[in-house]
Simulated scan of single mutants.
Amino acid sequence: MIKKLFLQIILIVCISNCFAQSPDRRWPEARIWAWYNQQPWYCGFNYIPAYAINYTAMWDKTTFNEAAIDKELALAEKSGMNSLRAVLQYAVYADDPKYFINTLDKFMAICDKHHIKFIPALFDDCSFGITNDPKTGKQPEPLMGWYAWAWSPSPGHSMVVDSATHPKLKKYVTEVIARFKNDKRILMWDLYNEPTNGGLGTATFPLLKKTIVWARAVNPSQPLTIGIFDQNPRLNKIITDNVDLITFHDYGDKEHVTKTIEELKQYNRPMINTEWMNRPWKSTVSEIVPVFYQYKVGCNLWGLVNGKTQTNLPWGHRPGDPEQKLWQHDLYSGDFKPYKSAEIDSLKLFIDRSKSAEYISEHQHK
């Protein structure tokens, strides 16, 4: 009896040590797998409202529109999807931190109402237009025929490369994560969307590394991640050495996505795809969702309702370029009609299947 009790105590201590770690360290494999095994299969989307030409417009006090967001997320819920990812905008926070925090809370309340988990991305280097720094207030109107004409990086390229501004960014990262560090409406923290993209290259590395340290110091209950999106070995080592779970972007066809997943298995951590769907490249619902479903890799396509960003156009599209009739992104047109009804039916089918006891049991990591 004493021996049995002693063994039970040893087991409890071992489990406790496994899940306890210094706040500046990433989660051990056992902890992240235990977390992942408790999650459903996430099948969702990258979200920017149809009214917003960029993420500044989404969050800014001059344009944030709860009613429009509620209608669009009701559409997502009706489609069966259960997660969304959206980029936050530092400039809006800097303009009025209290407003920004309250607006995030309102947005997450809408997500929760529609049973959708939120994946916030704190920074973003991407730039598709002619401006690389955001400005709050009224945003430009679309330039017809230009993909993501007025996209606004966060915090903007000037601040990324100017280390003197980084204490301000530390305050932003720390305050936002600390405010929601135990909020169950958040699935995970995506610290930086496509760092180095938009022409910055390795100039992003200092801020990227600092952001990881700042976030770890807060020690949120949700896991931390950064998406792998290209073949830069230096960047990918920073990412894979520091994230709790592996996230990645892949707009390739079925063979390419399968190869990516098989290669990422080497890290022995759960995987969630945070960007996919490019119809002209054969990254389609019918081809790709079955792959993610088979591997129980969560997936977030781009995007929900087509609007001012004009992401139905191909990357790099400019006014006067030949028309591409096949949409690149987006599930619905602005009038909420599906671009292809079969896509919505297929998403619902796989999401419903993923809720079966057999599927859940089969995909439990041992």
Rank of each mutant, 00 (worst) to 15 (best):
T103F: 11
A178H: 15
L331K: 06
I261H: 04
I32L: 07
N102Q: 14
A86W: 04
D125Q: 07
P233C: 04
A50E: 08
P233G: 08
L5M: 12
K78A: 14
M81P: 02
I101H: 08
Q89I: 00
Y172I: 02
P220V: 09
I351D: 01
I186D: 02
F205N: 12
E275C: 11
V87L: 05
A342E: 14
W302Q: 12
P28N: 15
P206A: 03
P134Y: 01
A215F: 04
P322N: 08
D352R: 11
P223T: 05
G201Y: 05
P28F: 12
I32T: 05
L75G: 15
I116G: 02
S127D: 06
Q364R: 14
F19C: 13
A52Q: 02
W327E: 01
I116P: 02
T247K: 03
N193T: 15
A30N: 11
K3G: 10
Y51G: 07
A86T: 08
T284C: 01
D345N: 11
L88Q: 04
N268V: 10
V213G: 02
P338V: 05
H329A: 06
L143H: 10
T247H: 00
D253G: 14
L5G: 14
L143Q: 12
A357Q: 13
N232C: 12
F64Y: 15
S158M: 00
Y295F: 10
P314D: 08
A150Y: 02
E263C: 06
K181G: 07
K3I: 10
D241Q: 15
I10G: 09
I130C: 09
D321L: 10
F336H: 13
S341H: 07
A57G: 07
N82M: 05
A34W: 10
P322M: 06
H329D: 08
